[in-house]
């Protein structure tokens, strides 16, 4: 039977719970899950100190409650389905390689850092650094998909090497900064200075946007591949309209201070 964890005690300070990953919980019974270690601020505690546990030994896990203070959930997750019924704190799905995470509320900063595979869906907003590299590192997400139905903060996809980030609403500044490759779709408005330092990869927005002076205008056309992507996003529940599917897009190429092999595609009607 599926596993349900219900938050019964709101942590007073940040709670780090990387053990809350379906593949890790799947081997455990109720008591085993409750005994898993978590870090409450600087104190060693257990899952049971904060959550009541129902069920066990299943790859589908539901966590109910406002987990806005709970970090590092599903670190290294490789499979299964994690449903977070509420908000979630930062570093969700760190280094995740497979499976799916669904968040019904908002997510904190650093969603899917160093993610290599799998999918994260956030129904609400997500914070800064979605799919981004950690400080000092050149490489952000290496694969997988992050779908956000709300807005996202700054620096989404910083150093992204592969995979996809799709956002239903607006993105913050420096979306796709230092991107090595991969795809970012922003159905709302693109934040300022998107694609700065981009080497390769694609950033798409369904609105016009100001691009950096180091991007050059190439053409206005209908990119065939885009239709496939957008259809897929519509399938995933993002608000893609018919006009977007067949529309024309302005293609800007850059960033000329780097390899100049990236592109920003802006919907032109």
């Amino acid at each position: 039977m599926s596993v349900t964890l219900t938050l019964h005690t709101q942590p007073e300070v940040p709670l780090e719970a990387e053990c809350l990953s379906p593949d890790r919980l799947a081997t455990l019974d109720q008591a085993g899950i409750a005994a898993l270690p978590v870090l409450h601020g600087n104190r060693n505690m257990t899952v049971g100190d904060f959550f009541s546990v129902d069920g066990g030994k299943d790859l589908t896990v539901r966590i109910i409650g406002d987990l806005g203070r709970v970090k590092h959930v599903a670190t290294g997750m490789s499979g299964g389905h994690l449903i977070i019924d509420g908000n979630i704190g930062s570093h969700l799905g760190l280094g995740m390689s497979g499976g799916e995470i669904t968040v019904t509320g908002h997510a904190g900063d650093w969603v899917g850092p160093e993610m290599g595979g799998g999918r994260i869906v956030v129904r609400g907003d997500a914070g800064h650094m979605v799919g981004s590299a950690y400080r000092g590192s050149k490489v952000g997400m290496r694969g997988g998909e992050i779908i956000v139905h709300g807005r996202i903060g700054n620096e989404a996809g910083n150093g992204m090497r592969r995979g996809m980030i799709a956002v239903a609403a607006d993105s913050g500044d420096f979306t796709g900064v230092n991107m090595i490759a991969g795809s970012i779709f922003v159905l709302g408005r693109l934040g300022a200075r998107s694609g700065a330092g981009m080497k390769r990869g694609t950033i798409v927005s369904l609105h016009d946007a100001e691009v950096l002076p180091t991007y050059s205008y190439a053409a206005c056309y209908h990119p065939v591949f885009l239709r496939h992507y957008l259809l897929r996003l519509r399938q995933l529940g993002l608000p893609v309209e018919e006009a977007h599917l067949g529309g024309r897009y302005r293609r800007w190429s850059g960033d000329s201070v780097e390899l100049n092999r990236g592109e920003i595609l802006l919907f032109a009607g």
Binding site: R193, A196, L212, P213, T214, S216, S256, V257
Partner: peptide, 25 residues
């Protein structure tokens, strides 16, 4: 400031810039 610095980087690297840089920066 960012646009200005980025424009300078482009020029140092010998890239072409559009004169509209004046409106931006």
């Amino acid at each position: 400031d960012f646009e200005l610095a980025w424009a300078l980087r482009a020029l140092v690297k010998g890239r072409k810039l559009d004169p509209s840089i004046e409106q931006v920066t």
